[in-house]
Design a protein around this nucleic acid. Structure first.
Lengths: 217, 217
DNA sequence: TAGATTGTTAATCGATTAACAATC
DNA sequence: TAGATTGTTAATCGATTAACAATC
């Protein structure tokens, strides 16, 4: 199975987790194979796009048959790197931090939260669902010594860049950022920012937009 | 000031909250005007794109001068509909639901959580930061009687569509969905889904991608 | 007025869709 | 084999960037 080489566009990458979710549903239903046409009707992308997307990574289908649900699930999981274990730390153990870490811990396999970090003395030493809250000053040492892959940033806007700098210095590989800033990170650090309020604002736009026209989608 | 009419692409809408964030920063620094060129260097979009984006909505700039920071901030806020107040309800008062609602309540102006809804008897009757947790069975009546605009869905994957159906039936205008499903809603209901684990999975891809090539961005 | 910078048209680039030969 | 469906090339569509006349 040939692996193609060109740089994959981010639009494609963003669709992969969705393909994977629908494949899990199909597995649950006991469906063994699916054609791009049937998949198209289910997931809402065109059959053409599905085939194009998948062909960026290899020849996963079989002419006249379709795609094996199990096989495709494993391929996409591997492409995303979900066949590995990731060790994470949480920085900022406030409401959002605690909720996100519980979410990541429970709802997604393969992502383990090893420790949380805080500056607030009243939180240091406590634990949330078995995760110890440590002193923020120990962050760099901890990341270096415990083979941490990902840092989850749940601190204030104003402190997030400093946290990102420390994580990068400590050799982190990825940052999952929930602070409302656009962080600067070195080229070897992967960054994914979730700007929650931006999504709420874009919802507000569409609510007002709907009332004006009658357009949907 | 002419208002243009063509359907605005979603790519543009998604950039508006970011423009607005940078305008807030500029206001804080006391900057009064900015050219598309200087804004470009700050925000990381091309000057051309900035001018194109803004010109979808009106002629906000002035030749030879640039854009008024205050003026542009107000225009973009109005375009997004952030000059209004929104009344919201939360459905699913678990960890994530509580965190999201506190976040929306504290960090973003103009969005008020009026009540939370739960099926779990041990949660009904309690309150989180002054927000009462009510019986899920009262949802439709409450939304109808209290002029609710937005429903925040923080229930399980399996229950989310049922919640969306009730909200739509009750005349909700927008849904901010955190459940890991692609909801079906009537055309007049605006939907914004935040699939957190999808963003984590896409981070995983980029982490592995970085190790292979040396490419960034 | 001269210089700066917009608004807008034209050119380019990239992503999506359509079409079809290859092949299971 | 005939039918189905892929992989892939070509055509289309849309979004971004470049260029420049309009104008403050």
């Amino acid at each position: 199975m040939r692996r193609k080489n060109a740089k994959i566009s981010n639009a494609v990458i963003k669709r992969l987790p969705r393909y994977r979710r629908y494949l899990i549903e199909l597995q649950k239903k006991g469906v063994e194979k699916i054609s791009s046409k049937d998949f198209s009707e289910l997931i809402g992308y065109t059959a053409s796009q599905i085939r194009q997307d998948l062909n960026n990574f290899g020849d996963f289908g079989q002419q006249g048959y379709g795609y094996s649900v199990d096989g495709l699930y494993r391929e996409i999981s591997a492409i995303l790197g979900l066949d590995k274990e990731y060790r994470m730390v949480l920085i900022g153990a406030g409401n959002l931090g605690q909720a996100i870490s519980k979410y990541a811990h429970n709802l997604t396999q393969g992502f383990k939260i090893c420790a949380a970090f805080e500056v607030k003395p009243e939180l240091i030493g406590k634990s949330i669902e078995g995760i110890d809250i440590l002193d923020y000053e120990e962050l760099v040492t901890y990341v270096e010594d415990n083979d941490i892959d990902i840092g989850i940033i749940c601190v204030n806007q104003g402190n997030a860049q400093e946290v990102a700098d420390r994580l990068s210095f400590a050799g982190i590989k990825g940052i999952w950022n929930f602070a409302l800033v656009d962080l600067e990170v070195p080229g070897h650090v992967a960054l994914e920012s979730v700007h929650l309020s931006d999504t709420l604002h874009s919802l507000a736009y569409h609510m007002n937009d709907k009332r004006k026209h009658s357009s949907s989608k």
